[in-house]
């Protein structure tokens, strides 16, 4: 492509790309809505029962049936739902009797906090371990990392969670038990962001802060270990790929220090695909890991959604699913953006 032409087309290309992106986002989210809505209707569960329970009289049942709009044709129900959803109104949860948006605003920060600490632990440990395993490929270290990774990836997380509680909480008393904070600290601060680490720190409640740290340590370490297993494995394979490249040989020939070759030259190149791996792991954790949240009595999104699903609380399920969809799309966009920062070739192409 000639440079002059490139300049000429630059603007429409950027615009076109942005539009394509917007279309993808809208289409993805709309598709998500359609699928969850339909699943909600196909499931052989009576949503009215979820509201009125098993004992209500027929008149009560009929009243709620109409209130939920179930007397209307399916497409009308759906269009009504989309219409409201666009304005940010996802309706009310049958279970908590609160607007879905409020429920999510309460449950999501708990998950966000846990997932963020988890992914930080996972990345901080996972990347160096992966690099190390790649460098010592086939050696003992590599095998140990592989086994640790396999355990982390395949052991049921609720079992590891219970075991962790038994050892670190019940036996050794190193960390606090299930829940986000002790009752005695519960009213020591006002939850503004819903991220307790941030809230307590900003309000200078250091006692409460330490308590929150002590509560989050175990579940976050567990999620960290879980994502570390995956991140380390991927880092290892990306690094092996890079270390086999000619530029590494060239660098060695030029006498560049080995650590520099590994940690600067090769890792920088491996970082590009790694960003996607980490972003997707993060998104996975943000969905709310149901089992971890259940074992640790963590009032997050995973527990909220599972409970809603089990009780056929479709408004909550749809709202929650949409949020997760947006998170996935958002993190995908973010990793695309980081790509362009990290990879000069992608930058040049735009």
């Amino acid at each position: 492509m000639k440079t002059s032409e490139g300049h000429h087309r630059a603007l429409p290309t950027v615009l076109g790309k942005a539009m394509r992106l917007a279309a993808t986002v809208v289409f993805t989210i709309f598709g998500l809505l359609v699928v969850t809505f339909l699943i909600g209707r196909v499931v052989p569960v009576d949503p009215v029962l979820a509201v009125v329970g098993d004992r209500a009289s027929q008149s009560t049942y009929d009243k709620v049936f109409v209130e939920l709009g179930l007397d209307k044709p399916l497409y009308v129900q759906f269009s009504l739902y989309v219409e409201k959803a666009v304005t940010g109104d996802f309706g009310e949860s049958f279970l908590t009797k609160k607007p879905i948006i409020d429920d999510i605003a309460r449950a999501f920060p708990a998950t966000l906090e846990l997932a963020t600490v988890g992914i930080i632990i996972g990345t901080l440990f996972g990347v160096p371990v992966g690099v190390w395993a790649a460098v010592r490929q086939g050696k003992l270290v590599d095998q140990v990392v592989r086994i640790l990774g396999l355990v982390g990836y395949s052991a049921p997380i609720f079992w590891l969670g219970l075991l962790g509680l038994l050892v670190f909480y019940a036996k050794w008393g190193l960390v606090a038990g299930p829940g986000r904070i002790d009752i005695s600290y519960e009213y020591a601060f006002t939850p503004k962001t819903g991220l307790f680490l941030l809230d307590t720190a900003m309000q200078g409640q250091w006692g409460a802060f330490r308590n929150v740290v002590s509560h989050i340590a175990l579940p976050a370490a567990l999620l960290g270990y879980y994502s570390m297993a995956y991140i380390a494995r991927m880092t290892r394979s990306f690094m092996l790929n890079e270390l086999a490249q000619e530029y590494v040989v060239t660098a060695r020939v030029k006498g560049v220090a080995e650590w520099r070759i590994i940690w600067v030259h090769a890792l920088r190149n491996a970082a590009v695909p790694l960003v996607t791996v980490i972003a997707l792991s993060y998104a996975g954790l943000l969905e709310g890991s149901v089992l971890t949240e259940t074992v640790f009595a963590w009032p997050g999104l995973g527990q909220y959604l599972t409970n809603s699903l089990q009780n056929a609380d479709m408004n909550a399920v749809l709202g929650g699913t949409l949020l997760i969809g947006i998170i996935f799309v958002g993190l995908n966009l973010l990793s695309d953006f980081l790509y362009t920062l990290l990879d000069p070739r992608v930058r040049r192409r735009t």
């Binding site: 632990i121 270290v141 140990v144 008393g173 190193l174 038990g177 005695s184 740290v213 340590a217 370490a221």
Partner: peptide, 24 residues
């Protein structure tokens, strides 16, 4: 190297678990 790394990892883990006395 292994020993050094294991030691480092253990120290980091210990730091992450910052022993706060749980109110029992």
């Amino acid at each position: 190297h292994v020993q050094k790394l294991v030691a480092a990892a253990l120290m980091c883990t210990a730091a992450a678990f910052a022993p706060v006395k749980a109110v029992a």
